[in-house]
Nucleic acid binder design. Structure first.
Lengths: 230, 230
DNA sequence: GTGACTTCTGGTCAGACTGACTATAAGATG
DNA sequence: CATCTTATAGTCAGTCTGACCAGAAGTCAC
C-alpha cells in the first residue's frame, strides 16, 4: 500500500457562480477556466488545479487552486469524483481528484479575469483540455440533483436574502420557473431559513422579508463524511 | 499537472455480501477483510486493495483486488470516495481511491477464507488499519441511502428471484421490517422487475412468482458517469 | 392624496404517494 | 379435507405537491 507509483496525482476544482446572462438578463451558471501554458493541450481552457503538496489535504489543495486562480473563497466545497482512466491524458498517466465549489455571486463579480483566466457559461463551453468537458457535465448534474434535496443554494447568496432571491437561485440552477407561493411553503416548512425580522426597503412593491441561513439544522449528509466547506 | 508527486496512490474496495446471521438466522451485511502482512498496522485487518498498475483503470484495479482476495466477481461496483488527508497513514502520505462493491450472496458463500482473509459482520468490526473503520461506515451509509432510491438490491441476488427475496435484501440492508404488500406495490409500479411467468415449486404455501431484473429501465444515474458495473 | 401597479404572502383544492391494515388465493402437509 | 403459511389484491386515511386564487403592502404617476 506504500509502494511508490507511476501515476501522477492532481487536484482540480469545478467552480460555479451565478451571473446574469447578457442576453436574457436572467441569472445562469458560470465557471472560471484557466488557459493551459504547457503541453499537452497548450492554449486550451482547463479546470483550475495542480499538483498535491505533501503537507496539504485534498480539499485544502482544491480551495487553494480556487483562491489562486479567482481570488475567491468558496462557500461550499465538496469532493466530486476521481478520474483515472489510463489514456485520459496524452503523455503520462494522471489521476485527478476533482472537487466542486460554489462561490457567492456578488463576490464572484469582482473575481480576477485576465488573458489566462476567463469565465464561461456552464452550458456553453468550448472544447476543453483532457476530459474536462465530461467532468463539468458531471459536476452540473451533481449540482442540479443536490440543490433539490439539500440546502446548498444559499451558498450563492450573501448573509441575508429574500425568498425571491433564493428562488431565483433554484430557478437558475434547475433552469425552470418555480411557483413563488409553493416555493415559500416548502422552504418555510424545511426549517432551513430563519426570518431576520428585517425587510428590504425601497422596492416598488410590498417589501419582502430578509431571511438568513439556519446553521442549526443539519444537512442530510453522510454520517462519517461531511463536505469540506458547507 | 504532470509533475511527479510525493503521495503514493492506492485503490481499495469495500465488498458487501449478505449472509445469514448465525444467531438470529436473519440475513445481514458482511464484508471480507485482509490481514496486513507489513507495517504499518502489521497483523491488523484492512480493506483489500493495493497499488495502481500503470495500464489499469481505477475501477479495474478495484475489481482485481476483489477477485484476488475473495475469488468473486462483483455484480455492482462504484467509486465511493478518495481519502487523502496527510497523516491518515503513519509513515508516508497515501491517497486511497475507494470503491464499494456488491456480490451475489449464493456465490459469496463459496468465497475464499483463510488465515489472512476473513469475513466480518459489517456492523461489528474490530479496529481496522488506517482510517478503514470510517471508510466502511461511509460505505454503509451510502449503501443504505442508495438502496432506497436506486435499484441495486438485485445485485445481491441471482438471475431470478421472488419479491420476498428482494424484500429480504432491503430489510437486511435497512435493518427494518417492510410490509410485503406495500413493498410489492412499490416495486411493481417502478418497472424495475419483470415477471418471468415461472413460479417457485415445492414450498409449503402458495408458490411465489419468479421475477428478473429489467435491464431496459435506466437507473437514476449521472448523465456523464455510470457505475463501473451495475 | 389617490388609484394603478407589482410583488409578497397566506390560503384552497385535487391528485399522487405512503403506511397501516384487511381479506382472499393457492399451494403443502397431515 | 382441514389447516397452515405465505402470496397477492385491495382499502383507507394522512401527507405531500403542483396549480391556482386572493388579499396585503409598499412605490409611483398624476
Amino acid at each position: 500500500m506504500n509502494t511508490r507509483l507511476e501515476a501522477a496525482l492532481a487536484v482540480s476544482t469545478v467552480i460555479f457562480a451565478l451571473r446574469s446572462d447578457p442576453g436574457s438578463g436572467l441569472s445562469s451558471l458560470w465557471l472560471p477556466l484557466v488557459r493551459r501554458t504547457r503541453d499537452p493541450y497548450l492554449g486550451r481552457w482547463a479546470l483550475p488545479g495542480g499538483g498535491l503538496p505533501t503537507d496539504e489535504g485534498l480539499a485544502g489543495a482544491a480551495a487553494r487552486a480556487l483562491r489562486e486562480t479567482t481570488g475567491l473563497t468558496p462557500k461550499y466545497l465538496e469532493q466530486l469524483y476521481t478520474f483515472g482512466d489510463p489514456g485520459r491524458s496524452p503523455g503520462g498517466r494522471v489521476v485527478s481528484v476533482v472537487y466542486w465549489a460554489l462561490v457567492e455571486s456578488g463576490e464572484a463579480a469582482l473575481a480576477v479575469e485576465d488573458e489566462n483566466v476567463h469565465w464561461f457559461p456552464a452550458d456553453h463551453l468550448p472544447p476543453l483540455a483532457f476530459d474536462h468537458n465530461r467532468i463539468v457535465e458531471y459536476a452540473l448534474w451533481r449540482l442540479r440533483t443536490k440543490v433539490e434535496y439539500s440546502r446548498i443554494a444559499h451558498a450563492f447568496l450573501g448573509e441575508t436574502f429574500t425568498l425571491a432571491q433564493l428562488r431565483e437561485v433554484h430557478e437558475a440552477v434547475l433552469q425552470k420557473a418555480l411557483d413563488p407561493a409553493n416555493f415559500r411553503r416548502t422552504v418555510e416548512s424545511s426549517g432551513t431559513v430563519v426570518d431576520t425580522g428585517r425587510r428590504v426597503a425601497g422596492v416598488p412593491h410590498r417589501p419582502p422579508r430578509l431571511y438568513r441561513y439556519n446553521d442549526s439544522v443539519p444537512a442530510a449528509e453522510p454520517g462519517a463524511l461531511e463536505p469540506a466547506i458547507g
